[in-house]
Simulated assay, not measured.
Amino acid sequence: MIMRIRGVVLPEREERTFWVDGERLRSEPPAGAAAKRVETVVDGGWLLPGLVDVHTHPGAESPDDRFDEALLRRHLSEHRDAGVLLVRTPGTAERMPGWVDTETELPRVRSAGQWLATPGRFFPGAGRDIGEDELAAAAVEEATAASGWCKVIGDWRWDEPAVPLDVLKATVDAVHAVGGRVAVHCQTSEGSHNVRLAHEAGVTVLAGTDTFPCGTVATESQWLLRAGMPAEEALGAASWTARAWLGLPGLIDGAPADLVAYDQDPVAEPAALGQPKRVILRGRIVR
């Protein structure tokens, strides 16, 4: 059986028809389609690339919890069922198990190794406790052991200084030299920007939850909207913009068959984002 999908694609706002060929989208019927049963699984409405949560920590619900693979599977299932088909896990208590990269029933995962914390800048015993002089080497190690990312705790207490800029710059340079990328935890005024001002300054703002239950990134997109981002860009922060930032295309020929479909335009009706009528992951119908 071959699946056919038709609807208005966002952000282009063009009506398109796709066929699912294995785990890929095709803009033309695949070879041999005429001899097979074709089933239209989405006929009209609005089509988005699968939703993305760029800041989620599946596998443990607090830094004091032991990382649990059964809980990881449950959390990823909750993301998937809500239409969140790609997640970035920027730091965990342990490195992600190898099966997350091969599990076809669960969202795609971009991990970032263990949290890297210099003295006094994180929950004691969570992640890797290292000295500032060890940060660059540890960041390279975590980035190369994960999916190209590492996670550095840049600041912590309001009354304590952030990681010195020269140390952080040397760490970023070292990771970039091996083709990796760095995520940095920032929560003080020294370490982070206001969302609206960051957007106006040209910073790419993406949606992440950092909380539970999993699968609620649609709500985070609405918070970005309330913070002053334009509706389409607040939505893209949880879909096509985030996917591009993590190296995956939108809904085009040859793209992964990861998509969510809606009866309403989620740009005009932001609350609709959390209510997909159809979720397709790797060419398989989730709902």
Rank of each mutant, 00 (worst) to 15 (best):
R4G: 07
I5H: 08
I5L: 07
G7C: 05
L10M: 08
L10S: 04
R13N: 07
E14G: 10
T17F: 03
V20T: 13
E23Q: 15
R26W: 12
A33C: 10
V41R: 09
L47V: 13
L48N: 11
L48M: 09
P49S: 10
V52R: 12
S62D: 13
R66T: 15
L71F: 12
E78H: 04
R80N: 04
L85V: 11
L86Y: 12
L86W: 13
E94I: 03
P97A: 11
G98D: 15
G127H: 06
I130S: 01
D133T: 09
E134I: 01
A136K: 00
A138C: 13
V140F: 00
V140N: 00
C150W: 00
V152M: 04
R157I: 01
A162G: 09
P164H: 12
D166K: 13
A170Y: 00
H176M: 01
A177W: 03
R181V: 01
A183E: 02
V184M: 06
C186I: 03
Q187H: 07
E190T: 02
E190L: 14
E190W: 13
N194I: 09
L197S: 11
A201C: 07
V203Q: 10
T204D: 10
T204A: 08
T209Y: 11
F212K: 05
E220L: 03
Q222H: 04
W223K: 01
L224N: 05
L225W: 03
L225N: 03
M229A: 08
P230C: 12
E232I: 12
L235P: 00
A238K: 03
S239W: 11
T241E: 04
A242I: 09
A242F: 04
R243P: 02
L246S: 11
L246C: 09
P256L: 06
D258H: 06
L259G: 07
Y262H: 05
Q264V: 15
V267G: 04
A271Q: 09
G283I: 03
